[in-house]
């Protein structure tokens, strides 16, 4: 099911690897599929690889949209 989850990049490691954190769970993953990742970014992690950087601005807008629906309803 293409299980993937957004996790925080906490450390950049050699060989295009990074250490990520998800509520205390830490794992080393590969950054070979993404570009310009920095500590503090959220990445979508799938089978040990970052697939995409998560866009916090877009996430906030989607959540704002959900909240707006509540007011309108």
């Amino acid at each position: 099911m293409c299980l993937a989850i957004p996790a925080l990049v906490v450390e950049l490691l050699p060989a295009d690897m990074a250490r990520i954190d998800l509520d205390g769970v830490r794992k080393d993953i590969s950054l070979s599929l993404v570009e310009d990742v920095a500590v503090g970014d959220y990445v979508i992690v799938h089978v040990g690889y970052a697939l995409q950087k998560l866009d916090p601005q877009e996430a906030a807008e989607t959540l704002a949209l959900f909240a707006e629906l509540g007011k309108a309803a």
């Binding site: 957004p6 925080l8 998800l22 509520d23 996430a59 959540l63 959900f66 309803a73």
Partner: peptide
């Protein structure tokens, strides 16, 4: 879990369901 839990909120789900 940031960017996960917010997208599982029961109250917001009810709003969307109502819509």
């Amino acid at each position: 879990m940031k960017y996960v839990d917010e997208f599982r909120d029961g109250d917001l789900a009810k709003n969307i369901a109502r819509k």
